[in-house]
Amino acid sequence: MSDIKYGKLLKATDPTAGDSAHPTLRAWRIFKASRSADAVLTNEGKRTPLGLVILATLMWISRRRNLVLVEFLPAVRRGIKGALVTRAYKFLLPRVVAGAQVMTHWEKDDYAHRYGIPKERLHVIPFYYFDDRLRPEPARWSPAGRTRYLSTGRNACDWDTLLEAAEGEGWPLTIVTRGTERARVVGAAARAGATALADVPRDRHDKMLASAELLLVILQEKAVSAGHVRLMSAATFGTPVILSAIRGVEGYEHLAVATVPPGDALALRNAVDWFLSNPESVRGRMDAIRARAIERPFSKYLAEIENLLHSSVG
Rank of each mutant, 00 (worst) to 15 (best):
V53N: 09
V102P: 14
P262K: 06
L150P: 12
G193T: 06
K5V: 09
G153S: 07
S20K: 13
A258D: 14
V96M: 05
W274H: 08
W60I: 03
S34P: 00
P201H: 11
F298M: 09
G18Q: 07
R292G: 07
V260Q: 03
E71F: 12
R78Q: 04
G116P: 09
F91N: 02
E137G: 08
L10M: 12
A56S: 15
A190T: 09
I61Y: 06
I218E: 09
G193K: 06
G45A: 10
R29P: 00
A56E: 11
R184H: 08
L276I: 08
S62I: 02
E250D: 15
E137N: 05
K11W: 03
V185W: 04
A27M: 05
H228R: 06
A27K: 01
H254W: 10
K8Y: 06
R204L: 12
G251I: 09
A210D: 02
D264N: 14
P201A: 11
V124C: 08
I242P: 01
A267E: 01
L41P: 00
P262Y: 08
L255G: 03
H22T: 10
L150V: 11
P279Q: 14
V96W: 00
G116C: 12
T57S: 14
R269H: 09
R290F: 02
D287V: 15
I80Q: 01
R121L: 05
R95T: 04
H254D: 06
G7R: 04
R140K: 12
V176Q: 00
G168Q: 03
S277D: 14
K32Y: 00
I218P: 11
K207R: 15
R135N: 06
A288R: 12
L266R: 13
M232A: 14
I117T: 10
G145A: 04
H22F: 14
L25I: 15
H228C: 07
